[in-house]
Structures are given as structure tokens and as C-alpha cells.
Amino acid sequence: MNRKGLLLLLLALVLLLSCLLHIHLTEVSSSSAAQANVLWWEFRFPRLMSALLAGAGLSLSGLLMQNLFRNPMAGPYVLGINSGASLTTALLMLGGFPWMLHTIGLVGSSLLGAFLAAAFMFFVSWRVQQTTGLLLVGLMFASFTGSIESVLQSWASPEQVKQFFLWNMGSLQQLSAAQVPWLLTLFTAAVLWSLLLIRSLNAFVLGQDQAFQLGVRTQRVRLSMLAITALLAGSITAYCGPIAFVGLAIPNLGRQLLRTQDHLLLILFCLLFGALFLLACDILSIYLDSYFSLPINVLTSLIGAPYIAYLVLRRS
């Protein structure tokens, strides 16, 4: 077992301990076994799963984005994948399209938005090669969708606005027991799919021409990466709201700590550390709860944004 493997093993161990801590911290004394059952299955377990799956999934989608765009500053949030999901959700919640809620639902619309945004950014990435240009387009897209959301808010009823505002803050506590299998299925499918791409992901590190020369079906792999990212970011955004910086920060941390471009290791790291990071944020928010209640998005940004700023400063 080498140093990198040891690090991953250690991460897995810490993650396990954090899960136990989280389970312990969310425990509430209950009057009956039935109530304890409800508490576990409807409140504590979905919250734990939200943290684990959202953290792991967003980190993985960030890793794929950074690989696809060959840009360490890429991520579902920065590139507007979340914005896309957010926009379609806003259309659904605020725009008065109740038929959408019935036909495709929150998850469907969020996925649709994520896919459309991913496709749009991919198209843009053909034309805009530079890092900064691409990120600027992503920012513009985010601010554009933000404006449309504002317009929708001025039409919507206060009740709808309230609901959308809450969703936009991000939460790990909105998932219900019945939704856990859905999220878990989408997540597992995306992870398995990306495991099948490891060889191609490693080749993509050299750029698409060299990947082609190494036998990669570049077109198909590119589409797969986009699909996985949209699947992960879309489903997680639907259930937990847009959560910032996890997808951007964790893969960078992984490359920095492991000093490798081996995507088997990086994927494992992103899954483990991403889950651990969001879980730790949630544990922190439980501890802080007696003083003030912080939305999860605030915590991830408070920790993630300075790290990204540090990365940018170090690179330039």
C-alpha cells in the first residue's frame, strides 16, 4: 500500500467516524419506538444521505468538468450548470407553469436545465478557448439567469417567492425518505458510468487530440462527461438547492494533495473527501445552530471561496 492509497484509506476512516458523529449529533430523545423510527428514516437518515451524496456527487461532477474543459477553475457552479438547473426550477416554482410540476416535476426540470446549460457551455467552450473567457461567460450566464429569476419573482406570489428563496439557499434537510432511493440511483449510475471512463479521463489530461491518438472515442467521452455532470449536478440541485464551491474546490484539493492525474485516485478522493467536506459543514452547522442558523450554502462558500482565491493567486 503506497502513500496515496493510505491517504484514501484514512479519508474513508475519517468519513466513517464523521458519519457516526453526525448520527450521534442529530439524535433527539423520542417518546416511542414509532417516533424514533420516523425521526431516523425521515429526518436523520435523509440528512446524512444528502450530505454524503451531494458532497460526493458535486465534487465528482467538478472533476469531470475540469477534465473536459482542461481548466482547474471549471465546476458545475462556475460554469452555470447550477444556474441552468436554478433557472428551470424558478420557471417551475415562480413562472406559473404548474403543468410542468405535474409532468416532469422538480427533478425533471432541474435535470433539463442542467443539461441545457451544460450543452450551452460546451458549445461556448468550442469558441472561447481561454480560461478567463470561459469563466466570464459562465458568470454572465449565472447573472443572466439570476435576472430572469428576479423578473419571475416580481410576478410570483409571496408564497412562491418564499419557497424559491428557501430552495435557493441550499439545504440538506429537505430530502425525504422516499426521495433517497431516487437520488441514490442517479448518483450510483453516474459514479459507475464515470468509473468506466477512467482510462479516457486519464488520456484527456493530454488534450483531446492526444486522447484521440491514444484510442479514445473523444466525441462519445465528451458527451458522456457532460451527461454525467448534468445528471449529478441536476439531481443534487433539485433536492438540495444550488450548493456552491464544493465542485470547484474538492478536485483541486485532490490534485494538490495526491499530486497525480490518475483519475481512479482522483475520483475516489472526490467521492470520499467531497462527502466528508459537506458532512463536516453540516456538523459545523449543527454545532453553530445554538448561536445562529446558517444555510449550508453560506458555510461551503465561507470555506470554499478563500481556498479558490488562494489557488488563483498561487497560479498567477
Binding site: T26, V28, V38, L39, R44
Partner: peptide, 13 residues
């Protein structure tokens, strides 16, 4: 005032 949801659930019998 604000309260955690599980605590309302368990104390409101």
C-alpha cells in the same frame, strides 16, 4: 422564535 423541526416533532404529543 425558531426551533429545530425534530424537537417540535418529539415534544408536541
Amino acid at each position: 422564535c425558531f426551533s429545530s423541526i425534530p424537537s417540535v416533532l418529539t415534544n408536541s404529543a
